[in-house]
Structures are given as structure tokens and as C-alpha cells.
Amino acid sequence: MTDRSHITLYSGGHKGAESEFGQLAEQWGIQEVNFSFDGHTSIQRTRGMKVLDPEELDKGNVSMEIVSARMGRKFAHANKIRKVIQSIFHMVNNGYHVLAVGWIQPDDTVKGGTGWGVELAKLFNRPVHVYDQERNGWFTWKDNAWTAEVPELDRDTFVGTGTRNLTAEGKQAIHDFFTRAFGPA
């Protein structure tokens, strides 16, 4: 088996896509870091858990008005989602390539909290790829537009994020990504 221990997945460890990325990282022998915070109860992956203290969380703080404007939507429970938004910053700040599974919307944002990770990747000029579960294909953000393209890694860090409502096709897309990027498990 090829040594993949120098490769790191950054995620949040939630049910669905993030949990799937984590399970496969473990299966492939890839390091895994899952960002969380005190009081966060919906995490499924505890391998490599990094609990962010208030000072660390604050590094990812951004005005919810900015998040709302960038995402083109309002957040009814802004205080509840703030820590999640802050932890997503740490995922994208640490990983280079950003891979997400969800739904690309007509305004080119991605549905849900996953969309903030995608928007940060765009802002940070990181390679960002989304598996759109409606169109059943990978899309890469290039020249301010989504282009059908299968993701390839050229660095040893990546972010795996996405919807909690992972379809069988989304799960297969993540598995196929690991096989293409890292060879057989």
C-alpha cells in the first residue's frame, strides 16, 4: 500500500458527505482533521477532532450580513449558525482543494452551509469542485463559472464537505474521487 500519511483531509465530520469523506480517508490511510466547537452535538466523525476554542473560532468570524449577501439569502437563526460558519473558515483555510457535494443553485452558489465553504474557496482563490447531486456530475469553478470537470489534486491537503442528505450517486462520486486521486485503498 502506498504511504498516504502525509495527505490531510480537513472537514467537519457531520452526517452525510463529511462523514463519507472521513470514512474513506481512514480507509485510504489519509490523515483527518475534523473541526468542531464546544456544544456541537451533530458531529459523527471524531477521528482527528480539533475542538476550536472561542479565540480560534473568532479567527473565522465574519459579519452575517456579508455571509447573507455573498450567499444571496437570509439566515433566520444567525447566532446558531455563526459557529458553524466560523468552523468552516478553518476547514478552507487549512485545506487547499475544496471538494463539496450538494446542489449548485441558479445564482451559482451552493445550497446550505456547504455553500459558505464553496464561497470561501472562491474568495481564497482555491480550486473548488462541487458534485451536483441533481445533475450527477462534478463541476469546477473556473473563470467565474461552473464547468463540468472531474477534480484532480495537486497538493497534499484538501477539504471534504457537503450535504447531510447524501445520495447514493453522491456517495459513489466521493468513492470514485478517492480511487482516482489515491489509487486502490
Rank of each mutant, 00 (worst) to 15 (best):
W146Y: 11
V51Y: 00
T46N: 04
I104H: 01
S63P: 09
Y96A: 13
G183W: 13
N94V: 12
W141S: 00
N79V: 09
V51C: 07
T41H: 12
K142N: 10
V62A: 15
T161V: 09
A25I: 08
N136K: 12
H77D: 09
N136M: 09
T46W: 05
I43C: 05
L57R: 01
G39R: 03
T140N: 08
N165P: 01
M1V: 06
I66G: 10
G137S: 08
V110Y: 01
S36P: 01
T167M: 06
K171L: 08
W103K: 15
S87C: 11
R73N: 07
K122C: 04
Y96G: 11
L123Y: 11
E55A: 11
H40G: 05
T46M: 04
A185C: 14
D108T: 06
G12P: 00
T161H: 00
Q31T: 14
G113A: 10
Q23M: 11
G60H: 03
G117E: 03
Q133A: 04
N93F: 14
T179E: 15
P127K: 03
S11C: 12
E56G: 00
K59E: 11
S87Y: 13
F178N: 07
T140R: 14
E55H: 05
V33I: 12
I81N: 15
G112V: 04
V84R: 06
A25V: 13
F35S: 01
T157L: 15
H129P: 00
F21S: 01
V67T: 10
A185D: 10
V130I: 06
W138F: 08
N144C: 06
W116M: 03
M49E: 13
A17W: 01
W116S: 01
G117W: 02
W141V: 03
T161C: 07
I81P: 15
M1D: 09
E18L: 13
H40K: 06
E152Q: 09
P151N: 09
D176P: 08
I104R: 00
L57K: 02
T109F: 02
T157D: 14
K59D: 07
Y131V: 05
R4T: 06
G117K: 01
L24F: 12
G113K: 01
N61R: 13
N93P: 07
A148S: 10
Y10M: 09
G115I: 00
A145V: 04
R73V: 08
S36L: 04
F75G: 05
G16K: 05
